[in-house]
């Protein structure tokens, strides 16, 4: 299964890039009170779906609209697309009401991927904030299914409260692995929470990775990513080994609509995953 075959399924250059293909909801998982995961399969069977970790799809709801949503499933599961979304906007709120068997339009996959190949031979630290864990999960799946190719692998995940923790069961399973270090922290908790409290950047100084030989993949709110970069820099991780995934308004995902511009970059086609050096000049400037 190659990336090529997905593109022939959903986003081939000879097709209208604005034309969604219909997929059917196979499973709905209510991850948290405001977050849900949809598992989708092509409505007409046949074509396998494939994508690279970090890429996203445009999901279309009949008559309502279209939104860019990162792919959060296992890239080696070729027959299903997994999307985790928070119900916060017009489209995603309606999307949260979808039931098994309903149809949804899909265009994609679009955008750049996490550097899972470049990271081979290195330690990997994955740092997620909030819903930012969703686009990082495929990278973690990929790394774990090629575990021997990597050095130490660490997942640092920060979120709002214990009830906001995404993929809770998955995380519990992952924590029991001996070849993966998982640390979860929340910004606030009642006294009954026995885990970490504090921002995710607090976890960086003690995380077990060799900073001189580490690739960092970071996704979360922009402020969280800026502070994470500072923490990684302090720890001695080379700036060129840090990758971030950015979010901007997107109408087309293929470079036509102009909405997602970030300085000279189009988040849709030059990103969403960027090497820190690509975005450094603009990340600390206001309202870019």
């Amino acid at each position: 299964m190659t990336t090529q075959s997905v593109q022939s399924a959903v986003g081939a250059p000879d097709l209208n890039p604005m034309l969604p293909q219909t997929f059917r909801v196979r499973k709905v998982i209510n991850d948290t009170y405001d977050t849900f995961t949809l598992e989708l399969t092509p409505s007409h069977g046949g074509a396998e779906v494939s994508f690279r970790p970090g890429q996203f799809n445009m999901l279309y709801l009949y008559g309502v609209g279209e939104v860019p949503i990162s792919i959060s499933g296992d890239p080696s599961r070729g027959n299903v697309l997994v999307h985790t979304t928070r119900a916060v906007g017009t489209v995603t709120k309606v999307m949260s009401k979808l039931k098994v068997g309903d149809l949804i339009g899909v265009r994609g996959p679009y955008g750049t991927a996490w550097p899972v190949e470049e990271a081979v031979g290195n330690d990997v630290v994955i740092i997620a904030g909030g819903i930012g864990l969703a686009p990082l999960r495929p990278a973690l799946y990929h790394i774990l299914s090629h575990r021997t190719k990597y050095g130490k692998v660490v997942l640092l995940y920060g979120t709002r409260t214990p009830s906001d923790i995404l993929y809770r069961k998955d995380l519990e399973q992952l924590r029991s692995r001996f070849d993966l270090e998982v640390h979860v922290t929340v910004d606030r908790a009642m006294g009954t929470w026995r885990g970490n409290v504090g921002v995710v950047t607090n976890l960086i100084p003690k995380a077990p990775f060799d900073p001189t030989n580490t690739v960092a993949m970071v996704c979360g709110p922009e402020i969280m990513m800026r502070f994470t970069v500072l923490g990684l820099q302090k720890r001695g991780v080379a700036l060129d080994s840090i990758y971030l995934s950015l979010e901007r308004n997107m109408k087309c995902a293929v470079g036509f609509c102009g909405h997602c511009q970030f300085g000279p970059l189009f988040v849709c086609k030059d990103g969403p995953v960027f090497r820190y050096g690509q975005v450094r000049e603009f990340l600390n400037k206001r309202e870019i």
Binding site: Y62, G63, V64, G65, E66, G258, H259
Partner: peptide, 19 residues
Amino acid sequence: CFCTTIEDTTDLRGTRAER
């Protein structure tokens, strides 16, 4: 200038939608 936005519409019966 090439920037565009998308508007979704449906007819009153909801059986036909356009972008």
